[in-house]
Write a protein that binds this DNA or RNA. Sequence first.
DNA 1: GCCAACGTTGGC
DNA 2: GCCAACGTTGGC
Length: 153
Amino acid sequence: MRYWLMKSEPSDCSIDDLAAMPNQTVAWYGVRNYQARNFMRNQMSVGDGVLFYHSNCKEPGIAGIAKVSALAYPDATQFDSKSKYFDPKATHEQPRWFNVDVQLVKKIPLIPLDELRRHPELADMRTLQRGNRLSITPLDPAEWAFITNRLVH
DNA sequence: GCCAACGTTGGC
DNA sequence: GCCAACGTTGGC
């Protein structure tokens, strides 16, 4: 059992969009960064905890709790020439990109980024580090516990 | 819209 | 394998 923070642009898929999906589940397609892909493909298990983070928006922060609901499988958009995520170098025999499914556990009152930054317990969180751009980052169990027990109201 | 930071690409 | 150029991310 591991814990993750996963960024989503609300203009693309917000917490409310996730809540409106069938089974409140979304395929986390479109990741085109090898480190983030490797986290999904090599390390994620069904049941892993996910903090659903709104990025690149007016109020960045944690918008909900979710979980991994399906192991990584080939990202369908890499084969779709009409998709902006199309990858001509990917084949069905040798897929390059993978995604897990993420299912909503609960929407929470937004925990803004500046609040996360105020807590010394979270000083080492990868997402808060200078220059970090990874859309998927692992969380320490202690960080997960602090956020879900202390910051979620 | 700016721009710092960082990943990727491709010529050599 | 180096590294400059370029593209993207994402907070502000």
